[in-house]
Amino acid sequence: MGGKVVTISSGKGGVGKTTATANLGISLASLGKKVVVIDADIGLRNLDVIMGLENRIVYDLVDIVEGRSKLRQAMIKHKKFDRLFLIPAAQTRDKMAVSPDDMVKLTDELREDFDYVLIDSPAGIERGFRNALEPADEVLIVTNPEVSSVRDADRIIGLIEAADKGPGRLIINRLKTDLVKKGEMLSSEDVYDILGLTIIGIIPEDELVLSASNSGIPVTLNTQSKAGLAFNNVARRVAGEDVPFMKLDDSPGIFQRLVGLLNGR
């Protein structure tokens, strides 16, 4: 049986798609899976930076599609995990250089050798998003607990449903429990109430994520980080494990309600 293509998408930019993709890739690899991550954000690549592989790029996605490079040549092996590979985006071209059909062809080839093909979708609902969506077996939607981000997530969930790739599962990123308590931030229940999708992960706000991204060592590698642990749990759920949701707060009220919500529906 071939591998699974998982697209990570959001609609709005800056909510943490690329960070989520990098961390899921690393977590899945550390679970022993063979993983390739594809940066589909052509023209604005940065998955390579977050994964700390920027200086190893020779060929990119567009080179593969246009036949200048063999698939194997363009794949960059991760420094720590020899089961994890990156296909970087081209920096100098734009999204029109790759078509949805190209992506399907490419991922069909990768499925044979890998357990998971993760695609980091660009923001927006245009060609780049179509490229990332077309080959997907499953879509994970990243949203922040914030009205405009949820609105954009809703928009792309509609497009995902229309393309019969739905409904997808939700990653709520950068949740601040103290703000939720004060009623200044949407809670995960509020987000669920609007979007109605299964939640596959709730990632707490964590300063370690920023320093990790800057240093090219994704936060899942840091055992001190709550966000890193949460990403690890998402990866295990993607891989089919039944992992209970982490306690993000000392107050039993919120935690109990959350568990009730996730079990109840």
Partner: peptide
């Protein structure tokens, strides 16, 4: 569910079996 960015126009009546989301 009718999600953000979608519009239904109708000359007659409209029944949505699901939510009508913000947007």
């Amino acid at each position: 569910t009718l999600r953000s960015g979608r519009t239904i126009h109708s000359e007659g009546h409209v029944i949505v079996f699901g939510d009508v989301n913000p947007g």
